[in-house]
């Protein structure tokens, strides 16, 4: 079947590095020999951030906004069908309960069972090739019927502006939702992943964000300022000293935008942002600090970027601060996920 063929294709490569027990630093992960869904095609230019304009399902989008999400990538789902979401809800709930009754779970507590809801979030997909986002909520049913069920886990799978060429190349039975975001106990996250793996023959992997991705976010968010107050631009570096030195730079949003604007104004191409502009923006901020403190921030690593629109951490944790410009963020993260997805 297709599954075994894919696994055969997968396993030798994941072994060939000989250091699979160590998570390689994301910067060096894109070695030329590695095959990923996007190959080497990291874009060097992107559209400037555009405000997100949806009227449908605002309630669910609001759910995406409140929490911190841990990111993973997912390989394409085999025979996933949007018409079967109710069935999936029942199956996942039964699966979690069964696992729990095997005595694996210790942390889940005193629940009589779980209620799971799968729902499709229409309106996030941008291109025709993008599959609709799937949102999953898990409630624990209390022992006493009088108590209301408590939400214990939530997560979603999405694809926003995924590479059309790649998406079109998938066999018809596959649905690609490469970005998986979860919020809740590690235990439940592992159960959900395991159920997906068994049901749709897919696999998950952790998604760390490279400093290049964080740079893009810093620049794209800053570019939003004239139309949407970003509140602040915060950059966090970690320096390899003994003990570790953390540097947190909060830039006035207007002044950050002035710098960004002066860089973009030189190039003139409207609505498109190039990687050179992003690099010059970040270098500009680092230079400003160097002129004051004579510190080489490039000796350390950029670990986090945040504005009122959201935050993103190197270790693959994000927060979405506002539903405006959510598309920009998800486009970038979808691309990161596809870049890490093995074929």
């Amino acid at each position: 079947g297709h599954g075994s063929a894919r696994q055969v294709a997968l396993s030798p490569r994941s072994r060939s590095y000989g250091r699979s027990c160590v998570e390689p630093p994301s910067l060096f992960w894109q070695t030329p020999g590695r095959l990923t869904a996007l190959g080497q095609r990291t874009p060097t230019a992107r559209g400037a951030a555009k405000a997100y304009n949806i009227t449908v399902r605002m309630y669910t989008v609001a759910l995406l906004v409140q929490n911190e999400w841990k990111l993973s990538y997912v390989t394409p789902l085999y025979r996933f069908q949007y018409t079967k979401l109710k069935l999936y809800s029942r199956h996942l709930a039964a699966f979690i309960l069964a696992e729990k009754q095997q005595g694996v779970a210790v942390e889940v507590g005193m629940e009589a069972g779980f209620r799971v809801t799968f729902s499709a979030v229409f309106g996030l997909a941008e291109k025709e090739e993008d599959a609709e986002t799937v949102f999953i909520q898990i409630y624990s049913k209390p022992m006493f019927a009088a108590d209301t069920p408590k939400m214990v886990w939530r997560g979603w799978l999405t694809c926003v502006n995924g590479d059309p060429e790649y998406l079109r190349s998938l066999p018809p039975d596959f649905v690609s939702l490469p970005l998986f975001c979860s919020n809740g106990s590690e235990y439940l996250t592992a159960r959900v992943k395991s159920w997906f793996g068994r049901t749709f023959d897919c696999s998950f992997g952790s998604l760390c964000l490279s400093s290049a991705t964080l740079n893009w976010l810093a620049a794209l968010w800053t570019g939003c300022h004239p139309t949407c107050d970003i509140g602040y631009l915060k950059l966090y570096w970690s320096m390899p000293t003994q003990p570790t030195l953390d540097v947190e730079y909060t830039v006035n949003p207007h002044d950050a935008w002035e710098l960004w604007n002066s860089i973009c104004a030189q190039d003139g191409a409207e609505d498109m942002v190039s990687v050179e502009e992003v690099q010059r923006f970040m270098a500009g901020l680092e230079t400003h600090l160097f002129r004051h403190f004579k510190i080489y921030l490039s000796a350390g690593s950029l670990v986090k970027v945040s504005t009122a629109l959201g935050s993103a951490h190197q270790d693959g944790k994000i927060k979405i601060g506002s539903s405006d410009y959510i598309t920009t963020l998800l486009t970038l993260l979808t691309e990161c996920a596809l870049l890490k997805t093995p074929v």
Binding site: T241, T244, L245, Y249, V251, D255, E258, K294
Partner: peptide, 26 residues
């Protein structure tokens, strides 16, 4: 060009000392 820079460490002076000694701070 307004901003706030916050340096933090479990022992800041030690970290800065290390920065200078290793050339991270010129």
């Amino acid at each position: 060009f307004r901003g706030v820079v916050k340096f933090s460490s479990s022992n800041l002076l030690q970290s800065f000392h290390h920065c200078v000694a290793t050339g991270i701070v010129e």
